[in-house]
């Protein structure tokens, strides 16, 4: 979470979006978590059913999908910081296009 928070802050003026998909928290825990962890970015709450996580075949948490400006999957993994360099590269590409 701290890393993600930094990421959002770091790229706040760039074409970047972090989208959270929550699985497994009760509504109360979820609301509390949003506040405690300072989740300022958009986050979908799935409740008991997990159609989005199922669609993406998510087996462990956290799981990340890095998606480029064209909507294509670039990499997946379980470590947020492992994506840092790739995110920078994709952002530069997206900004060059504009």
């Amino acid at each position: 979470m701290p890393h993600l928070r930094e990421l959002v802050k770091l790229h706040q003026d760039r074409p970047f979006a972090l989208i959270g998909i929550n699985t497994g928290d009760s509504p109360e825990d979820y609301r509390k978590g949003l506040e405690d962890h300072g989740v300022s970015w958009i986050s979908a709450y799935q409740g008991e059913e997990t159609p989005i996580a199922d669609m993406y075949r998510v087996r462990g948490y956290p799981t990340y999908f890095l998606i480029d400006a064209d909507g294509k999957i670039v990499m997946t993994g379980h470590s947020g910081s492992a994506m840092d360099d790739k995110i920078e590269e994709l952002l530069e590409k997206a900004e060059a296009k504009k």
Binding site: I19, D25, F65, I67, A94
Partner: peptide, 23 residues
């Protein structure tokens, strides 16, 4: 949780990190 709906495709043009997580 407040009922705002969005689509992944709304974010076309942006670099997106999808984060599947739980607290």
């Amino acid at each position: 949780i407040d009922g705002h709906q969005f689509k992944l495709s709304d974010y076309r043009g942006k670099v997106v990190v999808l984060d599947f997580y739980g607290f």
